[in-house]
Amino acid sequence: MSTESPDELPGRETRRLGSLRLRLTLALPLLNVLAVAAFEWSLGGDAPTPEGLARLAWLVLLLSAAQLLLVELWMLRPLRRLAAGCEAMESVPMPLTTDGEGAAPRLAVELDRIGHAMQRARDSLWQQEQAARELQRELTEQRQQLDQAQATLEANRRELASLERVDTLTGIANQRVFDEALRREFKRAQRQRGLLALAVLDLDQFRQFNETHGREAGDAALQRVAALLSTRFKRDTDLVARLGGEEFVALLPGFGMAEAQGVLESLREELRALRLPDGSSEQPLTVSIGLAAASPAHPYLSAQALLQAADEALYIAKHAGRDRLSLAA
């Protein structure tokens, strides 16, 4: 049986509320730190920087302050009002008189006062329950919004990663992918003493083509050329990419100069046969090609040296009249 006096009960309730406030003040920031850290980790971010840690600290601080304010408004304040009501009820003296005529009315008044106090307590508890449900509903909505935002960020990240490796106009690889593949295949050819052919292709008079037929016809021609390259070079090891503008490249592991020359001459004839734009009777769109090939008999010091040799061969093809294939020395 409790030995606390009635005067000690309000103070005990106040201490309990203070203890609850202290526990919430300590627990909410810790939970927010764990939630924010889990969210950042799910995004697959890099190692945290001082600026990133400072930003996370401010975010945790703001979230904790907002949550503590909500708890203070919707939970602790109603509890304080309830405790105050109980204190007021308990502080009302209960007369213990036994005189016949005055006892019954005073007892009825005290019972009525107790009933009103209990009704106020029930009302306060109901309001507290409603506030808790509202808080739970808002937290659920925030969690759903957070999950939706995370899903959107992940979709955007995948789309961005795809765009970083694909030319948006033609759908073939971009220069970043080509640079990685060139370094990789060059090292493999050196290690295995194998063959590696590299062709740089540039459409002839393409600026004049755009001025004559329009930008849309030029974009369509670039797409047709990319499709032709993808059809002609379709081995798993082949790579075709657009370097930018009207310049393309074909990386052909296992091909020597002679094999690559035959395929590229056929491709040049096929492009002329397309008679771009769309079977026009005018001078068709043509291509100039520079070809270089690394082999044990004709090695190159680096992948960049191989690419430079192909570029120089393309320069010769352009200045020799265009619409031709030039071989690196």
Rank of each mutant, 00 (worst) to 15 (best):
L146I: 13
P6I: 00
A38R: 15
G11P: 01
R215N: 05
L135A: 15
A303T: 02
L43T: 07
F233N: 08
L53M: 08
L301Q: 14
D236G: 15
L160T: 12
A241Y: 00
G321C: 08
R80M: 04
L20D: 08
L26F: 04
V249N: 04
P48T: 15
L222M: 12
A226C: 06
G44R: 06
R77T: 07
P29Y: 04
R16G: 04
W126G: 07
E154Q: 15
P10Y: 03
T25A: 15
S266A: 13
R113L: 02
A227F: 01
R193L: 14
Q148N: 11
P95C: 11
L68K: 06
E110C: 09
L229W: 00
A310L: 10
P253D: 03
L228C: 11
G194M: 05
T237N: 07
L125K: 06
W126I: 09
E138V: 11
R55T: 14
Q136W: 12
P10A: 01
L163H: 05
A88K: 00
A117L: 02
D238L: 11
A54S: 14
N156V: 12
R275P: 10
V109H: 10
L201E: 01
A121P: 01
F233A: 09
L79E: 02
I114E: 01
K187Y: 05
Q261D: 14
E134V: 11
A309S: 09
A47T: 14
A121T: 07
E13L: 03
G11K: 00
L285N: 06
L301D: 15
M118S: 04
R16A: 08
L69H: 10
T170V: 01
P253C: 09
S124F: 01
Q148R: 12
Q150R: 14
M94G: 15
R272W: 04
V287M: 05
E269V: 08
A292P: 03
L24I: 09
L307W: 04
R55N: 13
A189Y: 00
A149Q: 15
L28T: 11
N156K: 14
R106L: 15
D123W: 02
W126C: 08
L169W: 08
L43C: 12
R80S: 06
R23E: 14
S326F: 00
G18H: 07
A294K: 04
E8F: 02
E90V: 00
S124R: 09
F209E: 01
A121W: 03
A217M: 01
R183V: 15
E270Y: 09
P253Q: 03
L146E: 14
E164S: 10
R242K: 03
L267A: 14
L314F: 12
R165A: 06
T168F: 07
L301Y: 06
